[in-house]
Simulated scan of single mutants.
Amino acid sequence: MFKGSMVAIITPFTPDGRVDEEKYRQLIEFQIENGTDVIVPCGTTGESATLDYEEHDRVIQICIEQVNKRVPVIAGTGSNSTTEAIELSLHAKKMGADAVLLVSPYYNKPSQEGLYQHYKKIAESVPLPQILYNVPGRTGMNMEAKTTIRLAEFSNIVAIKEASGNITQSGEILAAAGDKIDVLSGDDFLTLPLMAVGAKGVISVTANIMPKEVKAMVTAIQEGRWDDARGMHLKMLDIHNAMFIESNPVPVKTAASLMGKCGATVRLPLVDMQPHTLETLKSVMKGYGLI
């Protein structure tokens, strides 16, 4: 249902910490102009964890308004409270989102049965396409392939964003339920290998600053131009890795700032990049001609 190059878009802030609506709209236009297939607001990269409820809804609303149906919008509405996730998802539906992205409950560390019941309840409560989001590095636990395979039986659970770093796990999902649920890469540096085993695309961090290049690689894979895709994949590894030299989204937001796209302001407990990692980031970006 959703495929290609999808961006987990950053949420720009003004120097005093408010959502910068003007810059945000410009970032959305930058993505569409460069071929990005889907915009994903309020994910991890969009600093959803430090947006209050009003801001969260507003960021999604701005995205839907600015996109104006030119590409799908997948709204991040996950929570470690099932009830809260349902409320956020229903509101996103009311605003016109095409789907929702649901991060696994963080901090609670539910069992695999708890994960199943969480997503089952949302699927039964929200009549909208849903994308599961497995990111153990953020949530503290892994959603196992067998749990995803069970959840694939729900018709409105259409995909999983796999950021476990485990290609075998993604392969197991595709082998058992690939006709019922799509896999999307949640790690830029694993997009090519995951698409090689059947993933449909990537929800990308790097696309915030290199949308044309990420789109080009995904297109090459889709068209079976594997030598071209492999070359682009290897060429982009350094910038993919640079996006995680500190906690996401600090490096990518700093990179966007260095390119003049928006401010670098992040909200506590995130802080500005440390001097040594900032210099590393600048060096990598210069290598790609980004600054």
Results as ranks from 00 to 15, higher is better:
179 D>Y: 10
261 K>P: 00
253 K>Q: 09
29 E>C: 00
213 E>Q: 15
56 H>M: 05
225 R>L: 15
166 N>Q: 01
160 I>N: 01
277 T>I: 07
48 S>P: 06
139 T>F: 04
286 K>F: 02
9 I>F: 02
234 L>M: 10
42 C>M: 02
46 G>S: 13
135 V>T: 00
44 T>V: 08
201 G>T: 11
123 A>K: 09
26 Q>H: 11
85 A>Y: 09
226 W>L: 15
229 A>G: 13
110 P>I: 02
196 A>G: 13
104 S>E: 08
271 V>R: 12
272 D>Y: 06
163 A>I: 00
101 L>V: 06
290 L>I: 02
192 L>R: 00
255 A>R: 04
132 L>H: 06
209 I>T: 05
192 L>H: 00
20 D>F: 13
207 A>R: 03
186 G>M: 07
51 L>A: 12
100 V>P: 03
289 G>E: 11
166 N>I: 10
238 D>I: 07
132 L>K: 05
286 K>W: 04
169 Q>T: 13
1 M>G: 13
264 A>W: 03
116 Y>A: 01
36 T>S: 14
129 P>Y: 11
56 H>S: 08
93 K>N: 06
226 W>F: 15
230 R>D: 09
188 D>W: 10
122 I>K: 05
222 Q>V: 06
67 V>F: 01
196 A>N: 01
277 T>S: 10
262 C>M: 07
133 Y>K: 00
290 L>S: 03
189 F>S: 15
226 W>A: 09
25 R>H: 02
139 T>V: 15
156 N>E: 00
216 A>P: 02
239 I>N: 01
10 I>F: 08
286 K>Q: 15
53 Y>M: 14
89 S>F: 05
141 M>T: 15
74 I>C: 07
